[in-house]
């Protein structure tokens, strides 16, 4: 019973959040200067031409009226038409979503592997130089933002030692007829390892740039939490049973130490998704973020709205998944 009530509350808050985001975006992008219609037309366009197009896109109405019309469409799955490309927003946005999802998830996996390894090493060799090295590395990784890491990586692996592709998502020669836009996933399922290698070579640097700061946060937080857990009585008791350090860390301490880290990683992962906007631009990676920047440059209001709503939806979904994982991993909540 409480389970369904929780889900209901969850859905309601999600709806309210999305509505709030929609209102704010809608108003803000209409208040900032810059006329989207003027940008579409050649310099010699007459006042009449402008007025006609304004009316066609509904920009002659009040912001409130525009919002009501837009919301009416959204409720029927119609997010309007992009001004710059004249295609439906929903289709455009959904076609780019897989690229950004793949990039974010690969970055998350990299962050968990790197951060987790550092935390475990720092705990295994605590109070030694190794732990100091982990602390220093994490501190350095955190003090530089993701887009600067992007530049550093381009210098390292694009210029000095050019082993990875610096731009795009896939080499044109290898662009097989994908049926979905989940290229990475599809290449894997179709066992096209040549394509997979090419995709990874393109994705490696942007994903790593996004992953480094998150890895550092995971390393710091998980190590702290592990070290605290290592002092607890059940860990000591496991030692007296004859278990060694590695077992005690990974089997006794880790399952409990992971919980506080998990919540924060959820929040940080939404920041990572936000980071894709700049990183995709930097690496000319054709995802949502790159499209968002084009949309802003072109004052493509319907497209901006669509992208922002999708990002907001992604963030709430991430939080939902984290909360569910938390319950799955924590027996104290499972039966409550």
């Amino acid at each position: 019973m409480t389970f369904f009530r929780n889900i209901l509350i969850r859905l309601l808050t999600t709806a309210v959040t999305l509505f709030g985001v929609a209102v704010i975006v809608f108003v803000v992008i209409r208040v900032v200067p810059g006329n989207p219609i003027a940008m579409m037309l050649p310099p010699g366009a007459t006042e009449a031409d402008i007025a006609r197009l304004q009316a066609q896109y509904g920009f002659d109405k009040s912001i409130f009226q525009q919002f009501v019309i837009w919301l009416g469409g959204v409720l029927q799955g119609d997010f309007g038409t992009s001004i710059s490309t004249r295609q439906p927003v929903a289709g455009l946005v959904l076609s780019r979503l897989p690229a950004t999802l793949e990039l974010s998830i690969v970055a998350l996996v990299m962050a968990v592997i790197m951060g987790g390894t550092m935390a475990l090493l720092g705990t295994r060799y605590r109070d030694t130089k190794t732990e100091g090295a982990v602390d220093v590395t994490a501190g350095m990784a955190l003090s530089i933002p993701d887009f600067l890491w992007g530049l550093v990586l381009i210098l390292l692996f694009g210029v000095l030692w050019p082993v990875f592709h610096i731009s795009g998502r896939i080499s044109p020669a290898l662009n097989i007829d994908f049926t979905t836009n989940f290229y990475l996933f599809e290449a894997l399922v179709r066992l096209r390892f040549d394509v997979l290698a090419d995709l990874i070579s393109h994705m490696f640097m942007p994903a790593l740039a996004l992953a480094i700061p998150l890895a550092a946060i995971i390393a710091q937080l998980l190590k702290q939490s592990l070290k605290e857990t290592m002092h607890l009585d059940y860990v000591t008791l496991a030692r007296t049973k004859g278990y060694g350090e590695n077992h005690v860390i990974t089997r006794e301490a880790l399952p409990n130490a992971i919980l506080p880290t998990l919540t924060l990683v959820g929040v940080q992962f939404t920041f990572l998704i936000g980071g894709t906007v700049i990183i995709e631009r930097l690496f000319s990676y054709e995802g949502l973020g790159n499209m968002a920047i084009d949309a802003v440059i072109n004052r493509d209001l319907p497209l901006i709205q669509g992208i922002v709503i999708l990002f907001a939806l992604l963030f709430t979904l991430v939080n939902l998944v984290v909360d569910m994982l938390y319950v799955v991993l924590n027996p104290r909540l499972r039966h409550a």
Binding site: D233, Y234, L237, K241, G242, G244, N256
Partner: peptide, 27 residues
């Protein structure tokens, strides 16, 4: 060290002070 640990595990045992913290909450 490793031999000592095995030996202790096989021949000795501890009854801890605080039963609320001596069992692993996730198992």
């Amino acid at each position: 060290a490793s031999e000592r640990r095995r030996r202790i595990g096989a021949t000795a045992a501890l009854i801890p002070q605080d039963p609320l913290t001596a069992l692993n909450p996730s198992k």
